[in-house]
Amino acid sequence: PCPIEVMRQVVDQMGASEITIAYGQTEASPVITLTRTEDTLERRVSTVGTVLPNVEVKLVDPETGADTPVGEQGELLSRSFMVMKGYYNLPDATASAIGKDGWLHTGDLATVDKDGYYRITGRLKDMIIRGGENVYPREVEEFLYTHPKVADVQVIGVPDERFVEEVMAWVMLKPGETADEEEIREYCKGKIAHYKIPRYVKMATEFPMTVTGKIQKFKMREVAIEELGLQKAAGIETA
């Protein structure tokens, strides 16, 4: 999803007053939820809207599969005539993605409010478990976007011998701005939980991406392990 702060800038600086946000996946052909032009700006910049007609959505606990109540985070599942039949010649992948009852597991974490507006909070596979505490990269990224010097940011988990995983932020600054790792960490103190503050900060000029522009966090993790010398924590044998 588009970062909230970026969306505000699009509305304020580009004059796109009626812009809306859609959420979906290719497997869902592709839109599941959508904001509307008549929604308040706050809802259009902070949520992905409500469910489209003829589409079902529910949030479930990733571990138990039980439905989660309003306001609590869960994995977003969708069911409709628009959901794919399956991945071509990949029956195991299809069975993993779509349950016998037709629910598509998106792998996205979300919450829903009492009015039916959804907010994407992260990717299930990207969740960081630091010393038993769950850290959702999306939450930390959204906070770091509020730093006046930050243009873009990606948060990943890197291996750690003590906590199993630690939080790392890759930060791109706005043109002409300067900042170091300590400034970024100091900005977080007292504003987000201590275990969510990035232990490592990399000042980056680019992020690894696919040809279609998707961030490759697994490659960021590989680079971090090499640059930070975390091979032992990662269980990687080195010569």
Rank of each mutant, 00 (worst) to 15 (best):
M7W: 13
Q9G: 00
Q9H: 05
Q13V: 08
Q13A: 10
G15Y: 00
A16R: 14
I19H: 01
T20R: 02
Y23I: 07
G24I: 03
S29L: 09
I32V: 15
I32N: 04
R36D: 10
D39Q: 05
E42S: 11
T47K: 05
N54H: 01
N54I: 00
V60M: 08
T64M: 07
D67W: 08
V70N: 02
S78V: 15
N89M: 11
N89I: 01
D92A: 13
S96E: 11
I98L: 05
K100Y: 02
T106L: 09
A110R: 10
T111R: 04
K114M: 08
Y118N: 01
R119P: 08
M127E: 06
R130I: 00
E133C: 08
N134K: 14
V135T: 09
R138E: 01
E139A: 11
F143M: 07
L144P: 10
Y145W: 12
P148F: 07
V150F: 03
A151V: 02
E165R: 12
E166S: 14
W170M: 06
P175H: 10
T178G: 10
E183P: 05
I184C: 08
R185A: 12
E186T: 14
E186Q: 15
C188L: 07
A193M: 14
A193L: 15
I197G: 04
P198V: 04
R199S: 08
R199I: 09
Y200H: 14
Y200V: 06
K202A: 15
T205E: 14
E206V: 04
M209S: 12
I215E: 05
Q216G: 00
K219A: 01
E222L: 07
E227I: 07
L228I: 10
A234H: 10
G235E: 11
G235K: 14
G235P: 10
I236R: 07
I236W: 01
